[in-house]
């Protein structure tokens, strides 16, 4: 898990250093000098591990699914709640599950990319 846990440290996204930002760097060299320092500071303080974040995500998805099940149950039992609330909560749980699967796919993809790196 230590390999995966280190992914949490990659908070300064590589996408932030697009060509658009380079232009401002050229205009103000002072910012360029500041940037590496702030990046180094972020790397020094360990952020929450990716495993923990993923665990929270899984918990949220589970909560959404149990919510949907509860609402559907109360609608079927004729207690309270409307039909659309049940369907909407089910859809929300489905979207949350898809998001979780997508995050997992990305994670495995990046891991495989690292393993393919020639040493």
């Amino acid at each position: 898990m230590s390999l995966i846990g280190s992914i949490g440290n990659l908070t300064p996204s590589p996408l932030q250093r697009l060509p658009g930002t380079q232009r401002t760097d050229a205009l103000a060299p002072g910012i360029q000098a500041l940037a590496p320092k702030s990046l180094a500071g972020l790397e020094a303080t360990p952020t929450a591990g990716f495993g923990k974040i993923f665990e929270q995500l899984v918990n949220t998805v589970e909560a959404k699914q149990s919510d949907a099940a509860n609402i559907t149950k109360s609608v079927l039992l004729g207690q309270e709640g409307q039909l659309h609330q049940s369907v909407i909560s089910m859809q929300e749980a489905s979207v949350a599950f898809s998001l979780m699967v997508e995050v997992r796919n990305k994670l495995v993809e990046s891991y495989q990319e690292l393993m393919r790196m020639p040493v």
Binding site: T60, Q82, H84, Q85, I88, E92, V95
Partner: peptide, 19 residues
């Protein structure tokens, strides 16, 4: 965490029209 944005507003409208 609300994944489907604006769904609460739509849900309230569905409730109102249902009434």
């Amino acid at each position: 965490m609300n994944l489907i944005t604006g769904i609460d507003v739509t849900s309230s409208a569905l409730n109102a029209q249902r009434t």
